[in-house]
């Protein structure tokens, strides 16, 4: 599948949904917030969220800030 993840185009053959995307990118699900095509996808909705080619996924986390 071809996805635009945090602005970068990635080819990820094994990825079909959000949990498999997080696994492929080595991200802990409880430490990231997800935005798919500008929609917030809460943790409980991730398993059923099927991804499609060219979906834009933003994976965000906390950083230091004022």
């Amino acid at each position: 599948m071809r996805l635009i993840v945090n602005g970068e185009t990635l080819l990820l053959p094994a990825v079909t949904d959000l949990p498999s995307l997080l696994a492929a990118l080595d991200q802990r699900g409880d430490r990231v917030a997800l935005l798919v095509n500008d929609d917030v996808v809460p943790p409980e909705a991730r398993p059923n969220h099927v991804l499609r080619d060219d979906d834009r996924v933003e994976i965000l986390t906390f950083a230091g800030g004022g």
Partner: peptide, 12 residues
């Protein structure tokens, strides 16, 4: 306060 930012895969 904390900020939000994109995950940095180069710096896990």
């Amino acid at each position: 306060t904390v900020a939000l930012r994109r995950v940095n895969r180069e710096r896990p």
